[in-house]
Design a protein around this nucleic acid. Structure first.
Lengths: 137, 137
DNA sequence: CTAGGACCTGACGTCGACGTCAGGGTCAAG
DNA sequence: CTTGACCCTGACGTCGACGTCAGGTCCTAG
């Protein structure tokens, strides 16, 4: 595949693919004229790289856990790294879940406030949704 | 509270707090000499700001959904923004979950590969964990 | 063989969330 | 009043993941 096809297939820019190669995340054969020719499966690989980036891993971290796709074998070191990164991702997941729940609380509290106001009465303590942030897990 | 106390309490740098003020995310009274004096509750607010940043929202997005903590009332616009940002967070959660599951699959496949190798035999197709990436949901 | 779209290698630009340094003022205790 | 910890305002530096521009090359359809 040519670089443009991979880029379109994976939904990234051509520049990004060259950058990945620069970082050692991607390799490519070259045509006689020097143009990159990618193996099939590269699109999947690029998508996974994107996933890892989206999970907050820097290119060095990606570089450390990615080689398993080429060798197909997990050394003890690779295994530990994978487990460690999985833990990081899980931690991110927990934080994100908490944040989502807070947003939900704010939304619900705001709804309640608006419902009561629709009912009619007082504006004594204008703190409606603010109390949603007072929790301490 | 003084800025150092807030910073320590929320686990951020003094510089970050000044930056938040610069972005309109935080306000503070001033002492006669010009030093910032923060209201109690600021620590919670800062923690929430950190949560939002960690959720991938930029300071402008934070600025748009944060005013509810001051006014305590959700306008229709605020409500829509909150719901929209909640959706973004949820989408991030979904992607992160998928990535975690992929990592799990890689780890399990690698384990299986190592277990078999411990058993003894062949090295025909050295793709061990690589097949874990072949899925298409 | 030729046009024009795709590709190449540098190399500088960007943007956000701060870090950091310089030079000086403030505050509370003794 | 002095001292030492804390705080102030600029203002430039950083880092990662690309964007973008310049100037030239490759490839393939006609």
């Amino acid at each position: 595949m040519r670089i443009g096809e991979v880029a379109a297939g994976a939904g990234v820019s051509v520049r990004a693919l060259r950058y990945y190669e620069e970082q050692g995340l991607l390799t490519a054969e070259r045509s006689p004229g020097g143009q990159r020719r990618y193996a099939p499966g590269t699109v999947e690989r690029v998508r996974f790289i994107q996933n890892l980036y989206a999970a907050g891993l820097g290119s060095k971290a990606v570089l450390r856990i990615l080689p398993c796709m080429e060798h197909g074998v997990l050394t003890d070191e690779m295994h530990e790294r994978l487990v460690a990164e999985r833990a990081r991702v899980q931690a991110q997941l927990d934080e994100l879940t908490a944040t989502r729940d807070k947003l939900d609380a704010v939304i619900r509290a705001g709804q309640a406030h608006r419902d009561r106001r629709e009912g009619g009465a007082g504006a004594g303590d204008p703190r409606g949704c603010a109390s949603a942030f007072a929790e301490r897990p």
